[in-house]
């Protein structure tokens, strides 16, 4: 790693102030940022740790919303969201491995928007709201393609608000080396319709599978998806799967998520 100054503020205001400095970057769990810094792909002058800010941590129910602090580790979500939003908790429990889940956070995952990360699918499929230090951003506006989001320089995620669905599930087909999603489908059924978000498959990052949503909104059953498949155009092709294979998995994983939804 290149060297840098490390600061660990105790409040959001202090963190925002520190991030205003030259070449400053926020650090949450560090599960993605630190490995990329080891490869010297990233050279911040200052790293601002967000994990010392208590206000950014915790899972709480507010009416029909589940609000998760941005610096809440996956393991905590897996445990504390289980009663209110079991599909989201189950997703958190499948990220990385137990050690990664003890450090990695939802805010870090969303801000990074890795095209194969798990959380963006739940966030988009739930129509969640990303709360930052300055504004609220709808999930549909937040994800802007691989590793790209609506966040401005120095803006930090403080919480994510998930509307609790009637039924939901996440089906993940794992990339065997990284344990990220080769293709993952998050399906959420709300009173006003069904949302399906796919991660791992597209070169554009997480996306809503509109054909799947349309079919499921009129008939929420795995059979409703029979004969339906995503287009291979724009799908990722790599060592672990061709675009055709990923397109095929979109259908399979969505069907499995629907079958598992409760």
């Amino acid at each position: 790693m290149y060297n840098f100054d490390f600061v660990k503020p105790a409040s959001v205001a202090d963190a925002v102030a520190a991030l205003a400095g030259e070449e400053a970057q926020p650090l949450s769990g560090g599960m993605t940022l630190l490995p990329s810094m080891k490869q010297r792909l990233n050279a911040p002058a200052t790293l601002v740790s967000l994990t010392g800010i208590d206000a950014l941590k915790g899972v709480c129910r507010e009416g029909n919303m589940l609000v998760i602090g941005a610096a809440t580790p996956h393991a905590v979500v897996a445990k504390e969201a289980a009663a209110d939003y079991p599909a989201l908790a189950a997703l958190a429990g499948q990220i990385g491995d137990p050690m990664v889940r003890n450090r990695g956070t939802i805010g870090g995952s969303l801000a990074n928007n890795d095209p194969s990360a798990c959380y963006p699918s739940a966030t988009l499929a739930s129509g969640a709201t990303i709360v930052t230090n300055t504004r609220e951003i709808a999930a549909d506006d937040f994800f802007q393609g691989m590793f790209s989001t609506a966040l401005h320089e120095g803006e930090i995620i403080t919480a994510v608000k998930f509307p609790i669905p009637e039924k939901a599930a996440y089906a993940k087909f794992m990339q065997p080396a990284s344990r990220f999603a080769l293709t993952g489908a998050f399906v959420a059924k709300y009173a006003d319709g069904v949302r399906v978000a796919i991660t791992g498959a597209s070169e554009g990052g997480v996306f809503r599978w509109s054909e799947g949503e349309a079919a499921l909104s009129s008939n929420f059953s795995a059979e409703a998806l029979n004969g339906l498949s995503a287009s291979a155009d724009g799908m990722i092709g790599d060592l672990h799967g061709t675009p055709d294979y990923r397109a095929h998995l979109v259908g399979v994983m969505t069907r499995r998520a629907v079958a598992a939804a409760h």
Partner: peptide
């Protein structure tokens, strides 16, 4: 079933870490 050390046509190692080389 899992392991594969792959170079692309330019000789760049595609599976150069445990993120892509499946142990």
């Amino acid at each position: 079933l899992m392991e594969n050390c792959v170079y692309d046509a330019d000789g760049q190692l595609v599976s150069g870490s445990f993120m892509d080389y499946a142990m």
